[in-house]
């Protein structure tokens, strides 16, 4: 697939996920939306700052009691074609150089869409806190 079609594919998948999440949490659970949205805003910068493995391990170990954050990570794994977030993490950690670089770039492309839809669909701004 060309870069553009991968990115279009991501856009479509992510949009559907976020829309569904929005529907499931419409109106009532503000906390859930914020959790999901703040992860969408925070993770891409964390990936840039710490590298993909550190960033994914970080969000995996901080998710205690945060179901929506967990849901976000499972969504991301699904978009990246992994069976679960745990699988994605394993894959990224053990990937040789070329695969690791590709996974990083693809994750960043996907995250770009989460960030956009968190803002436009869920209405969560970058400065809003999920905690």
């Amino acid at each position: 697939m060309t870069i553009q079609t991968i990115q279009q594919q991501y856009a479509k998948t992510v949009y559907e996920q976020v829309l569904e999440f929005d529907k499931a949490h419409s109106g009532k659970e503000d906390k859930a939306r914020k959790e999901y949205g703040s992860m969408a805003h925070k993770l891409p910068v964390l990936v840039r700052q710490a590298g993909l493995v550190q960033a994914l391990v970080f969000v995996a170990t901080r998710g205690k009691g945060k179901d929506s954050q967990k849901e976000f990570l499972e969504h991301l794994a699904q978009t990246m074609g992994a069976g679960s977030f745990g699988d994605l993490l394993d894959q990224v950690r053990t990937a040789p150089l070329v695969e690791y670089m590709l996974l990083t770039r693809q994750t960043l492309w996907a995250l770009e869409w989460y960030k956009r839809f968190a803002q436009s669909v869920l209405g969560i701004d970058p400065t809003e806190e999920g905690d």
Partner: peptide, 12 residues
């Protein structure tokens, strides 16, 4: 490798 670095290793 360079194009990876260009995308991920600039200063943010």
């Amino acid at each position: 490798v360079l194009s990876f670095l260009l995308e991920t290793a600039t200063e943010v």
